[in-house]
Simulated scan of single mutants.
Amino acid sequence: MEKAQQLEILKQLIAIPSVNDHEADVADYLVTLFAPYRDQVTIERVTYAPGRDNLVITVGQGNKTLGLAGHMDVVAPGDLAQWDTDPFKATLKDGRLYGRGACDMKSGLAAIVVALLEMLEHQTLPGRLRLLATVGEETGEYGAAQLTEAGYADHLDGLVIAEPSADLSEVGYTAKGVIDYILTAKGKGAHASRPQLGINALDHVLEFANQAKARLAALDQTDPVLGPLTHVISVIEGGEQINSVPAQATLKGNIRTIPAHPNQQVYDILDGLVAELNQRPGYNLNLTYSFPEEPMPGNADAPLLRLIDQVHQEVFATPLTPVGQSGASDGSEFLHAKGDFSIALIGPGGSTSHASNEYVELAVYYQAIEFYQRLAQKFFD
């Protein structure tokens, strides 16, 4: 495939405004690319919601399976005045391709797709490869969760996710988990001059906040790569006006967990705290969680990671650095699949994820295509 064709595939993907939705349009386009090879591929669409289809494409044969994953959604472009170009019209400038998703992560998805197409075209498929193209990664990894529950990632022999990784100079192999929680409190309104007639809901969420911070701070184990568990209270809302006792209040927080202190340990602490406080007179607290993700353990010396380092040395002049990641990815869901396999996150794209004027270095995009092909060949060797 000529570079012009490789580039066109990425440009077409960026032109599809799959902002937290419309991933089925991306899937439609990808299916057309594999249509000439229908007798050699298995194409499955797994619908999450109308207009939101995950896509699973399996090529090649053999007893081993290498998974290659990427998400099809992007975040909103934000303030268009901050963009120098149309975010959904890929624009070339000074060796870079600009557009929403150019970095995170349509360049990674495109590089995997092109690598598979080229192996099909040249009949050089080394074994069984499975593309897992997901919906909803940016808002909760629920496409990856759906595919995992349906068994599409079961018993893989390795999984590579094409998340941007400092232009493929880093490989992520472990990651923190995420817990977003929402605490609501119901009290009783009263005039501020007669507070004894009311129940201050805001006082109750502040009591929870103080105790939660102290109890989670007691989880003092630190991961050598990821660092400690962190807890940020990010939103507090309550009350109607300055001279009234707040009858209701809300507190929101974000926790980043580590393998030594997994999510369940945090749930037990916070749920237990709510149960204790609700035994007090007047307390009426309710705690919910949104899109929690488990921490992703990993081993920098795993065979897949060693192989990635070996292939990286062949393609790139700079060394590869194994890293941990503080943000969640589809890997946090795929790790629940059956079987024992390593997950690695490595793909084109630098530091412009979610930013205005998002871009990918074209040279790195082309190198990523070569990298994924070589990795597939050596994985089965």
Rank of each mutant, 00 (worst) to 15 (best):
N63I: 11
P17W: 07
P281Q: 02
I161S: 00
M119N: 07
N54S: 09
V274W: 03
L168R: 09
T85Y: 10
V274A: 11
D180P: 00
G60Y: 07
L183V: 13
N210L: 13
P77L: 02
Q264K: 07
E358A: 11
V74P: 03
S169I: 02
L345Q: 10
L362D: 11
T91S: 13
G136T: 04
S356D: 12
Y366Q: 14
P259Y: 03
T91W: 03
Q325F: 00
L55V: 06
A15L: 03
S169V: 04
T124A: 10
D53N: 07
D94F: 09
G331K: 02
L202D: 10
G62Q: 12
Q325R: 15
G282W: 05
P126Y: 03
E23L: 07
D94E: 15
V235N: 04
G347K: 01
V360L: 05
A209P: 00
R194A: 13
R306Q: 15
P36D: 06
V160M: 09
G60R: 05
P77C: 05
T288Y: 08
P228S: 13
K188C: 07
H122E: 14
R128I: 08
Q61E: 15
V75S: 06
Y173H: 13
G227P: 01
E294M: 01
R194W: 05
N299W: 05
M296W: 06
Q123I: 11
Q325V: 12
A218S: 14
E23K: 02
T230G: 03
Y181K: 02
L159C: 07
N357Y: 10
N20I: 14
L270D: 04
D268Q: 14
T58H: 12
P195Y: 01
I233Y: 06
K11G: 10
D94N: 14
Q265I: 09
D28A: 03
A144E: 01
Y372M: 06
Q265R: 12
Y98V: 13
V274S: 08
I242F: 13
L229T: 10
